[in-house]
Design a binder for these strands. Structure first.
Lengths: 129, 129
DNA sequence: CCTTGACTTGGAGCGCACTCCAAGTTTGTA
DNA sequence: TACAAACTTGGAGTGCGCTCCAAGTCAAGG
């Protein structure tokens, strides 16, 4: 349902990223929809580069209840900022890849001296923008 | 100059990510500005998640000259697409983090049933949007 | 010339995040 | 009830990307 492997699920639970996944009589895991949404949120944090130990820390704070909301808020605020940074960094890199592609589409060798190459060099050196 | 460690530089060269870094008489590396821009481009690829083996492949194609421009163009096009995917994925995750933050800012426990919680659940389940 | 610090190499080690395995248990279908 | 498939566990193994180390060489200031 979430695209993660059973092994990863078990690993996440053991690592403390999933809280209170209940079991049936035989001991098999039964994921409630709350478990599922917890997992989905954890996956969003992971997908955006939060290390497992930090996710664990966040999940621990959730378990500790309302007294920790301030800490959690600040964790998420910081993480949101990091995501925004990642996005702008990706945008910068994409620009460079696209300029390089533009060069290829103009049929230029990447070692040629040319306006486009210079633009690329400026971008790479960070002397532009 | 680029923020990468000397060890990483040596590792990248050994791995075939840097082409033709020249040496002085004593065998010490002397990075030309071309080397530097090559490195900077490699770093853009790495920063956007291209694995080292794929960067090596790209660099090998560059070394092989003009006959490989088509392959290189398609590599960069595919990679550009992946970057765009990453960016939209980050945007989706950021939206969810921001909704969660909104909940915290409203002073709600994340386990409360509420409009905002429902919005978050819809986002997590992907039933919305 | 001498010393100190930065460089060279090959190779070992590390942290992260899974991923796989073996041996045993539970579940669902015929 | 039999049996295969899917689950359980602890722990070992894998791949990636560095990062560190030891032993030796080179470079620059006093």
């Amino acid at each position: 349902m979430t695209g993660v492997s059973a092994d990863t699920l078990r690993y996440y639970e053991k690592a403390g990223l999933l809280d209170g996944v209940s079991r049936n009589v035989g001991g098999h895991r039964r994921f409630s929809s709350a478990d599922l949404n917890g997992l989905r949120f954890v996956l969003k944090l992971r997908m955006t580069g939060m290390p497992i130990r930090d996710v664990r820390r966040y999940v621990e704070l959730v378990r500790q209840g309302d007294a920790t909301t301030d800490q959690r808020r600040s964790i998420l605020q910081d993480h949101g900022d990091r995501i925004r940074q990642q996005m702008s960094e990706l945008a910068r890199c994409l620009e460079i890849v696209d300029v390089k592609l533009e060069m290829y589409d103009l049929g230029l060798s990447p070692t040629d001296e040319h306006d486009c190459t210079k633009k690329l060099a400026s971008l790479l050196e960070g002397t532009l923008k």
